[in-house]
Amino acid sequence: MRRKSEPKNHMSCELRAVSVNESVCRAIIGVFLAPENPTATELADIKCAVSEAVTNAIVHGYGAGNEGIVYLGAEIYPDRTVRITVRDKGKGIEDIALARRPLYTTDTSGERSGMGFSVMESFTDRLRVLSRPGAGTRITMYKRLS
């Protein structure tokens, strides 16, 4: 989605790819969006989508026991569109279409639902996935606030 206008605010940060930072990322995005007065539902949707993207980066991008950094960025545009980017430099996704399929998971423990991308798609207006095996993954999500 090419945007003509400049963002009126933006933020970016990097966090160690450890699971405790999933809630940290939700908190960061909540604080960043607070001045825009999003509705409770909008905020909950965005937090959930961010949680899924960050979890994917930690669990699938890097995997257990691997060091890495998760990059979280957000921009707010004058038309109240929020663009959120979650990026990792992990192993990447071999088949993005397959990964986005509901209930698909590479996890064998039976404890991952395979619904991460479906949640991101449902709770945002648009989801873009860029990935290269061996290089990493970039998730970009758009949501326009009311």
């Binding site: 937090k47 959930c48 899924e52 404890e111 991952r112 639902s113 395979g114 991460g116 479906s118 949640v119």
Partner: peptide, 10 residues
């Protein structure tokens, strides 16, 4: 207060 798809897996 919050649940993502990890809760579905749970």
């Amino acid at each position: 207060g919050f649940m993502d798809s990890s809760g579905i897996g749970l």
